[in-house]
């Protein structure tokens, strides 16, 4: 059982990191994954949703 849990955790980590690196490679990565301090390019990662229009 313990081995299965560890295997699942490692598999999830592989999937997450793999997906992350792939997204970076494709230029779609988020700053949290890309660089710890890239506030200067944060606008590329944070697409700001439209604010609610006043009725």
């Amino acid at each position: 059982m313990e081995t299965i849990i560890v295997f699942v955790i490692v598999a999830l980590a592989c999937l997450y990191v793999g997906r992350n690196l792939y997204r970076q490679f494709k230029g779609k990565g988020s700053c949290s994954a890309g660089c710890s301090c890239a506030t200067e390019v944060k606008h590329q990662c944070n697409s700001m949703p439209p604010q609610q229009t006043e009725q």
Binding site: C14, V17, N20, C31, S32, A33
Partner: peptide, 12 residues
């Protein structure tokens, strides 16, 4: 950003 990175990609 540093904490978030440590808690996500670095953790993975």
């Amino acid at each position: 950003q540093y904490i978030k990175k440590a808690g996500t990609v670095i953790l993975g």
